[in-house]
C-alpha cells in the first residue's frame, strides 16, 4: 500500500486520527457557511443598493439585483455557492469584482506573518515570566509580573496600537507607523497583538507549572537532591507544557482571525480586515470565503496542536483513535 511510503506502521493510528479530524471538519465548515449565508441574506441591507451607493434609482437597484442573482430563493443561491466552492471557486466579490479565492490567497501570507510573529512574541514573554512566577509563588516578582501581564490583556488593542505608534514612530522615529513595506513594518502590529496573548500564556504557564511542581515525582526528584533548575527545566516544564501549548494554539487561531482592530490601526492588509470590510459592504461571497477560510485555518491549527501533544507526551499518542 502507498500508505507505507508515507507513514511508518507504528504511526498508522496518528494518520487515522488526522483523517478522522479532517473528515469531522467538513460538517462544521458546511454549517459555518450555512449560518453565514443566512446571516448575510436575512439581515437588513441590500448588496445591490450598497454597490450603487447614495444615488441609486429603484430601477437600477432592481436590475442589479436580478443581474447578481439576488432574487433567487435562498436555497438555490446557497446550493450554487456550495457547488462552486467544492470546485474551488469562491466566486467574485460584489464590490471589487475580484476573485475571492485569489484575494484571500494574496492576503493570507500577511495575516500569517502577523499572527506568527505575534504568537512568538507572546511565547518569548509569556513562558519565561510564567515559569519565574510559578517558582516564586506569592513573591513580589510573582505579583508584579502577574500585574504587568494582566495589564497586557486589559488594554484594548486599538489603544495600545496607537500608543505604540506614538512612541516608536512619532517620538522615536524607529519604526513605520503602518502599512506593509519591509519586515520592520510588522514589528509594531505584532507587538500589539502579542501582548494580549503574552498575558494569557503567562497565566497558563504559571498555573500549569504550579500544578506540576506539587506532583509527587517532582518532590521525589527534589528529595533525591536533583538541582532545582534541573527539576524545573527537565521534569516540571515538560509536563507543564501540554496545557500551555493548547493555549498557544488557541491564541494563534484567534490571532489569525481576530486581528481586525490591530489590522485597522496599522492599515495592515490582512484577511481579518478584508472580512470586516466585506461584512459592512454586504459582500456575501467575500464574507463567506474569508469566514470559511479562517474557520478552517483555526481548526487546522487546533489539529496541529493535538498532533504536537503526541510528540511531547508519548502517553497521549495512544489516545489517537
Amino acid at each position: 500500500m502507498e500508505y507505507h511510503l508515507l507513514l511508518l506502521s507504528d504511526r498508522y493510528p496518528m494518520y487515522r486520527f488526522i483523517l478522522k479530524r479532517l473528515f469531522l471538519l467538513l460538517p462544521v465548515l458546511l454549517g459555518v457557511s450555512l449560518l453565514v449565508f443566512a446571516i448575510m441574506s436575512f439581515t437588513p441591507g441590500d448588496p445591490a443598493q450598497l454597490i450603487l451607493g447614495e444615488s441609486a434609482p429603484a430601477e437600477a437597484v432592481a436590475e442589479l439585483r436580478e443581474e447578481m442573482g439576488l432574487n433567487d430563493p435562498f436555497i438555490v443561491r446557497y446550493a450554487s455557492f456550495v457547488g462552486n466552492a467544492i470546485t474551488g471557486d469562491l466566486g467574485r466579490s460584489y464590490s471589487t469584482g475580484r476573485e475571492v479565492f485569489g484575494e484571500i490567497a494574496s492576503r493570507f501570507p500577511n495575516t500569517l506573518t502577523l499572527a506568527t510573529l505575534g504568537v512568538l512574541i507572546a511565547i518569548v514573554i509569556g513562558v519565561p515570566v510564567g515559569i519565574i512566577s510559578a517558582t516564586r509563588q506569592y513573591s513580589l516578582i510573582d505579583s508584579s509580573s502577574m500585574v504587568v501581564a494582566l495589564l497586557g490583556v486589559s488594554m484594548p488593542n486599538f489603544w495600545l496600537g496607537l500608543m505604540l505608534i506614538l512612541v516608536f514612530s512619532v517620538n522615536l522615529g524607529w519604526l513605520p507607523s503602518g502599512g506593509f513595506s519591509d519586515w520592520s513594518s510588522v514589528i509594531l502590529p505584532a507587538l500589539t497583538l502579542g501582548t494580549g496573548s503574552a498575558a494569557i500564556i503567562t497565566r497558563m504557564t504559571r498555573s500549569s507549572m504550579l500544578e506540576v511542581i506539587r506532583q509527587d515525582y517532582i518532590r521525589t526528584a527534589r528529595a533525591k537532591g536533583v538541582a532545582e533548575n534541573v527539576v524545573i527545566n527537565r521534569h516540571a516544564l515538560k509536563n507543564a507544557l501540554i496545557p500551555v501549548i493548547t493555549v498557544i494554539g488557541l491564541q494563534f487561531g484567534y490571532l489569525l482571525g481576530g486581528a481586525v482592530l490591530t489590522e485597522t490601526v496599522y492599515s495592515w492588509p490582512g484577511v481579518g480586515r478584508m472580512m470586516v470590510d466585506a461584512i459592512r459592504q454586504k459582500d456575501t461571497p467575500t464574507v463567506l470565503g474569508t469566514v470559511v477560510f479562517l474557520a478552517a485555518a483555526f481548526s487546522l491549527v487546533n489539529l496541529a496542536v493535538d498532533i504536537l501533544y503526541g510528540f511531547i507526551d508519548p502517553r497521549i499518542k495512544s489516545q489517537y483513535k
Partner: peptide, 9 residues
C-alpha cells in the same frame, strides 16, 4: 459552528 464564526460577524 458558532465558535468558528467570527464574533465580529
Amino acid at each position: 459552528i458558532f465558535l468558528a464564526v467570527p464574533s465580529i460577524l
